[in-house]
Amino acid sequence: MWSGDELDLDAYLARIGYDIGRDGELAPDVRTLTALHRAHVAAIPFENLDVALGRQVPLDLKSLQGKLVDRRRGGYCYEQNSLLAAALERIGFQVAGRGARNRSRGATLPPVTHAVLAVTIDGEQWLADAGFGWQGVLEPVPLRAGARVEQSGWTFGIGVEDEGIHVLRSLRPEGWTDLYAFSPQTLYPGDFTVMNHYSSSHPQSRFLGQVVAQRPGADVRRALVRETLSSVRADGSAEERIVDTADLAVTLEAEFGIELDSEERARLERLHAAGV
């Protein structure tokens, strides 16, 4: 389903810094899922730079591996979770896609455009999501009502609403905040392709015309959206600074591990300077 048989697993493990001798043998169990998820999130940044540059965003495994693994770039949810799904499938996990509605922007009702994974282990489902940016989980979360997990000082929970809708929530100093909600309906790679088309090309997509790079670190979470670089810690403390055009490439590399070639740098700097 996720082309796991085509994945260069050794290259993927090297990209995320997973060493079998140090971190343990791979098996379709909770320990492996947790370790891989955490390593993936720490190593591969969330970013939309190809969309900002007006490029196509292919989701076939060869393209994903070439970009996120070989070129050591990042990607957004469809890319991140398609690659993670391929790795999990290759190891022997049962993986299904889900489509989520983002609730992190308040009372608006956006379309279902976020792609997540449901992984089944010994009859229990786990939410796996390496692609929600700086607000996302570090590790998988059990998909059961009332589940609450603490991950390096960040607390997440699962609620269940009418029609079996699951809600991922984050505990902030001011209380619980909904991040996104999704139904139990299974989605497939082709469904990710349809959602990806909207997010990468529709005029109302929030990914067009601006630079976005994010990383949900264990100690501090960072997000660059347009010219503003935001940092937040688990205690709620936060800071912001403006990134000017001259500092854009340096910031992307230093804060997110994203290295640009000369053409990408020039085009993104022009976009950044225009402030579209």
Rank of each mutant, 00 (worst) to 15 (best):
residue 24 G to K: 10
residue 62 K to S: 09
residue 29 D to W: 12
residue 86 A to F: 06
residue 28 P to C: 11
residue 37 H to L: 02
residue 173 P to V: 08
residue 105 R to A: 10
residue 47 E to L: 00
residue 201 S to I: 01
residue 259 E to R: 15
residue 145 A to G: 06
residue 237 S to Y: 10
residue 118 A to I: 01
residue 9 L to P: 01
residue 184 P to D: 08
residue 196 N to W: 00
residue 230 S to P: 01
residue 13 L to W: 05
residue 146 G to T: 11
residue 56 Q to T: 06
residue 119 V to Y: 09
residue 269 E to V: 04
residue 216 P to C: 08
residue 254 A to Q: 15
residue 41 V to P: 00
residue 142 P to C: 09
residue 125 Q to Y: 02
residue 65 Q to L: 01
residue 236 G to P: 03
residue 273 A to V: 04
residue 104 S to A: 15
residue 29 D to I: 10
residue 91 I to T: 11
residue 89 E to L: 11
residue 172 R to S: 09
residue 190 G to C: 02
residue 240 E to L: 11
residue 20 I to Y: 07
residue 114 H to T: 01
residue 255 E to T: 08
residue 204 Q to W: 11
residue 78 Y to F: 15
residue 172 R to T: 14
residue 246 A to D: 15
residue 137 V to P: 03
residue 142 P to L: 11
residue 56 Q to S: 11
residue 16 I to C: 04
residue 101 R to Y: 03
residue 45 P to D: 01
residue 107 A to T: 12
residue 223 A to I: 07
residue 120 T to W: 07
residue 24 G to Y: 11
residue 72 R to E: 07
residue 61 L to K: 02
residue 102 N to L: 10
residue 249 A to P: 05
residue 3 S to Y: 12
residue 17 G to E: 01
residue 52 A to C: 04
residue 141 V to P: 01
residue 93 F to Q: 08
residue 152 S to P: 00
residue 24 G to S: 08
residue 221 R to F: 06
residue 96 A to S: 15
residue 156 F to C: 08
residue 79 E to D: 07
residue 235 D to F: 12
residue 94 Q to M: 12
residue 211 V to H: 04
residue 15 R to F: 03
residue 237 S to I: 03
residue 190 G to P: 02
residue 251 T to C: 13
residue 276 V to I: 14
residue 250 V to N: 13
residue 93 F to S: 07
residue 23 D to Y: 11
residue 78 Y to P: 00
residue 258 I to V: 14
residue 109 L to R: 13
residue 128 A to F: 08
residue 25 E to Y: 12
residue 92 G to E: 13
residue 67 K to L: 02
residue 148 R to N: 11
residue 48 N to V: 02
residue 273 A to W: 08
residue 151 Q to P: 00
residue 208 L to H: 12
residue 259 E to Q: 14
residue 227 E to T: 15
residue 260 L to E: 12
residue 231 S to I: 04
residue 1 M to S: 12
residue 172 R to D: 04
residue 162 D to K: 13
residue 254 A to I: 05
residue 234 A to T: 13
residue 116 V to S: 02
residue 173 P to E: 10
residue 29 D to F: 08
residue 249 A to L: 04
residue 46 F to P: 00
residue 54 G to F: 09
residue 186 T to L: 07
residue 55 R to I: 00
residue 150 E to I: 08
residue 270 R to C: 07
residue 4 G to S: 04
residue 174 E to T: 15
residue 183 S to G: 14
residue 56 Q to I: 01
residue 35 A to I: 04
residue 140 P to Q: 11
residue 77 C to Y: 06
residue 211 V to L: 07
residue 187 L to R: 14
residue 216 P to N: 12
residue 97 G to L: 01
residue 199 S to L: 13
residue 49 L to D: 02
residue 135 Q to H: 13
residue 259 E to I: 08
residue 183 S to V: 04
residue 79 E to M: 05
residue 147 A to Q: 14
residue 248 L to N: 07
residue 230 S to K: 15
residue 139 E to R: 15
residue 120 T to F: 03
residue 54 G to I: 07
residue 64 L to K: 08
residue 19 D to C: 14
residue 96 A to V: 09
residue 100 A to L: 03
residue 139 E to T: 13
residue 175 G to S: 10
residue 271 L to Q: 12
residue 39 A to F: 05
residue 189 P to I: 07
residue 275 G to D: 13
residue 21 G to E: 14
residue 94 Q to V: 12
